[in-house]
Design a binder for these strands. Structure first.
Lengths: 203, 203
DNA sequence: CGGCGCAAACCGACTGGACGGTACGCCAGG
DNA sequence: CCTGGCGTACCGTCCAGTCGGTTTGCGCCG
């Protein structure tokens, strides 16, 4: 409990409702009722309805960015770093599946300044990932016959699409899916000039 | 001209506005003003606002399904058919980029019966694609160490994601992108047991 | 050929209700 | 007694959809 259990309950309820009904079709009334609080309480902690939306994005973006930075900072062979990053992104995206659903559906409903910030932060994320791929290309690990931006898009498309098909109740666990998607991605972007790829330069 | 130029104008305007502002945040007033008609005229041809949304989906789904059926019916080696289907889906999805944007953002706002139909028709499409992959797997062309449904999702994720990054003004043409994405996909799903894949069994 | 009737196309002011946001007041605790 | 947390009643706006009415196109009959 402590302070602002209210804010938490509201965020939770909002997330659930936004994910299942969409942002625009969910009324503030519904949210506060589901959260077991009143409008007054909610507007005491949030300035507006889109504050709720932004809060959801903020949590997810911050966490994923922190993960990415952490993995990159840990260092190691590029191939391993890329693999770890891919697996992590898929896994955390599955952890934040409702957030992802809401994100891609309703991002465009944020008012201009907010939208700018979200877009900006996503771009930073993509750029960091692209930089990793670049390092891999420089080492001759990844193909260069296709624009790097397309490789980036190719990977993130899987992440986006997760919320359209993955279900925790399904047959596959999140780490299985993460491994499998990562493997598909890596196979598609690996340079095929030589057969040398998996056990070549282990320090 | 002819009959119902009005309906056409309205559909066009609606598509443009839905794609740029979102479905929920676009008012019927805006649409009819952009289309140069009146509300009365619009409600003469459409029963409701979500009729417009459905009309957009309908066009896209029908066209893509027809393409798919045509390519499959034309026959040929499975590998070629799959390749042709992938290229075609990407290309037509680029042709229908605004429709795609609207589709994935706003599908969930359709009333239940309509939503059911759209979901159903998408599923048929996916199933037909999955059947193709199955044929390829039976012939030993495609890998079987990953659930087929994941392979399907892996491909359609690229198609979905197009509207998030592709721009006709960008450096790449639509057929380049189609070729490249198809190539990435095919490489990731091709069975690697032997090096025999591209020139093995040509009739 | 011209006028008539009728149906389809079209107009646009209006409504009813929902919804985001606010004003204000109450109450507990420091 | 006064501040911060919260409840409640209310407000102004907006908007999908409607409805009575007008115009337009057109076959048909005299």
């Amino acid at each position: 409990m402590k302070t602002t259990n209210v804010a938490d309950q509201v965020t939770r309820a909002a997330l659930e409702l936004f994910a299942s009904q969409g942002y625009a079709t969910t009324s503030v009334q519904q949210i506060v009722e589901a959260a077991g609080v009143t409008k007054g309480a909610m507007y005491h902690y949030f300035q507006s309805k889109d504050d709720l939306l932004f809060a959801i994005y903020d949590r997810m973006l911050s966490l994923q960015k922190a993960h990415l930075d952490g993995i990159v900072a840990a260092g190691g062979p590029v191939a391993d770093v890329v693999r770890a990053v891919c697996v992590d992104v898929v896994e955390t995206s599955i952890d934040f599946l409702p957030e992802g659903t809401v994100f891609f559906r309703s991002m465009h409903m944020l008012p201009e300044p907010r939208l700018k910030e979200v877009t900006q932060r996503r771009r930073e994320y993509h750029d960091e990932f692209a930089a990793l791929l670049r390092r891999g290309q420089d080492e001759g690990l990844f193909r260069t016959d296709v624009p790097r931006s397309l490789l980036v898009a190719h990977f993130f498309s899987d992440v986006h699409y997760l919320s359209h098909w993955y279900s925790p109740e399904g047959p596959e666990t999140k780490s299985q899916v993460a491994q499998q998607l990562t493997e598909l991605f890596l196979r598609s972007i690996t340079e095929q000039g030589r057969g040398a790829d998996d056990r070549a330069d282990q320090h």
